[in-house]
């Protein structure tokens, strides 16, 4: 598994639950090192062991924890770059949603050896969308779900997002102008 994914998981656990918890998790998962490097690749077994250890330490189920991680990635002030990169994908939430199938390509442009699972988006009409994540990474769909919840808030739309099972996320857009949303300017160094 790419170091960026592992490092993201580590950042989420450290910043949400503290460095002590991370040390416990790393120890329990028998990592053999203090932390992941973003630009190295690791045996996928390690990612799995870290997730198991984190669920045990926190008494949480995997999907719930991964969903929180998705929200963390899109909202953490420590990682402003991720939110910005996501917002580049569309001027509106709908545009963003419909461009999700570009996301793996966009990510690969930036980091050539990081290949996200394929995402497909179906517009079922009536402001109802189905987002399907291919099953290469079993935990990917819950991360996307958490990320979409945070990004919907960022755009200021009211949307109902539900896991539909088998990597499917159901998106019902209730109100496109529910709140003001956060401003997004293209210039780097701005919001």
């Amino acid at each position: 598994m790419h170091g960026l994914i592992n490092k993201a998981l580590q950042a989420f656990l450290t910043q949400t639950y503290g460095a002590a918890l991370w040390r416990r998790v790393a120890d329990d998962a028998r990592l053999g090192f203090a932390g992941f490097e973003a630009m190295l690749t690791y045996d996928p077994v390690l990612t799995d062991r870290v997730l198991d250890a984190a669920c045990r330490a926190l008494g949480r189920d995997r999907d719930g924890l991964l969903e929180d991680m998705g929200t963390f990635l899109a909202t953490s002030p420590a990682l402003p770059g991720i939110r910005r990169l996501l917002r580049f994908c569309g001027a509106t939430f709908e545009e963003f949603l419909l461009s999700l199938d570009d996301l793996p390509d966009r990510v690969q442009l930036a980091v050539p050896d990081l290949r996200l699972p394929t995402i497909t988006v179906e517009d079922r009409g009536g402001a109802f969308f189905l987002v399907t994540c291919q099953p290469e990474w079993p935990g990917f769909a819950p991360v996307v779900l958490g990320l979409l919840r945070a990004i919907a808030d960022d755009y200021g739309v009211l949307a109902l997002l539900d896991p539909g099972g088998d990597g499917v996320i159901e998106v019902r857009l209730i109100d496109r102008r529910f709140a003001d949303g956060r401003a997004f300017r293209l210039g780097a160094g701005s919001a």
Partner: peptide
């Protein structure tokens, strides 16, 4: 883009 508040 730093000088002007542009969006997509």
């Amino acid at each position: 883009l730093r000088d002007y508040p542009l969006t997509s």
